[in-house]
Design a protein around this nucleic acid. Structure first.
Lengths: 180, 180
DNA sequence: GCCACCATGTAATCGGTTACATGATTAA
DNA sequence: TTAATCATGTAACCGATTACATGGTGGC
């Protein structure tokens, strides 16, 4: 983020929120100590840059920092990939619920996707400036947007399948299925 | 997992690996202590169930455990959702790479998706038994499978875009773009 | 005899969040 | 005046992984 124009810890945090947050977030409790560690390691340089009476610490990469960044960027060794999706977990233990309860979970999740999409579109609409000549970080948001659309569609399909099943069950004159 | 037929900590771990692992994993270092905590809280019951000379502890839900499980399953309050995708992060800092380096990253990621898909399909092909009358946990795997297909397609599209750009650049007689 | 698998566990560590505290600046 | 935003920081905590240790069973 420093390399793309961010200067302060606060600044970095804002940039994360409008770009990578969806697949790589960070909190102040992580950012500030990390900046200090990087400075101690000689990968970034701190400079006092007060704004009026506000003390402000501006960071930038050192040549060593640039080098390490580029090494990381081109390292194709093992790369971390993980997800935690609690709502999905609940849906996959759907056997333990009635059809009605399960459908309600699926619907709630689809609506969450819808709301998250609105949020992302809102971020996308405010013209994001200060990113430098190219636009890759905006693409990060688009990845999130498109992935969220995929998720919404997946849940919408499930919803249709479940309502179709409910209709079949009703037609057959049986009561709604109960968990085993 | 206990509710779906798993009995030992080891058993739970295997089940996770072939079902929810993609969006909710767990290690032994988490499972065994957690089973003890649940037992202390009265939510599960432990019974010694030795297999020959091997000591083995089989767990099952208590009525209180069933209750708490159902409460969790139907609770539509805040539900955790997070991702960490290192490779994607590198691609979104692609501005700092040459077109060749970036393309290589995208290609490597697409191939990783391809390999992961093969892995998932392998798991899917072995008939998974011991899941009880319904099949929701298998659907977990299918969600992972379909999501991974979406990711593969996304990277494949990026790959095409980048190669098309490289061709245009070559036709225009300029050299490959360098990072700013 | 050996390897793969079944089975259980823990200590050290780590990456990260939450909650809290402080205070200046700017726009309504 | 007040609220929002800019700005920095830390202590307590937590969920989780990694690495290690141990040992039995079953099939080749």
């Amino acid at each position: 983020m420093l390399r793309l124009g961010s200067r302060t810890g606060y600044d970095i945090k804002q940039k994360i929120e409008i770009s990578t947050r969806f697949f790589w977030g960070a909190s102040y409790g992580q950012i500030y100590p990390e900046l200090k560690r990087l400075a101690a390691a000689g990968l970034v340089e701190a400079a006092q840059d007060p704004r009026g009476g506000v003390k402000r610490t501006a960071y930038r990469l050192t040549p060593a920092g640039e080098r390490v960044l580029h090494e990381w960027l081109t390292d194709r060794g093992h790369q971390l990939f993980e997800m935690r999706d609690e709502a999905l977990l609940k849906i996959f233990f759907g056997d333990l619920l009635t059809d009605e309860e399960l459908l309600e979970n699926v619907r709630a999740r689809r609506e969450w996707c819808e709301r998250t999409l609105e949020l992302f579109r809102g971020i996308d609409d405010m013209a994001v400036t200060g990113w430098g000549p190219r636009e890759s970080p905006t693409e990060a948001l688009h990845y999130g947007l498109e992935l969220m659309e995929w998720m919404r569609d997946w849940y919408a399909r499930k919803e249709r399948e479940l309502t179709a099943r409910a209709r079949r069950v009703r037609r057959a004159g049986t009561t709604a299925r109960r968990p085993r």
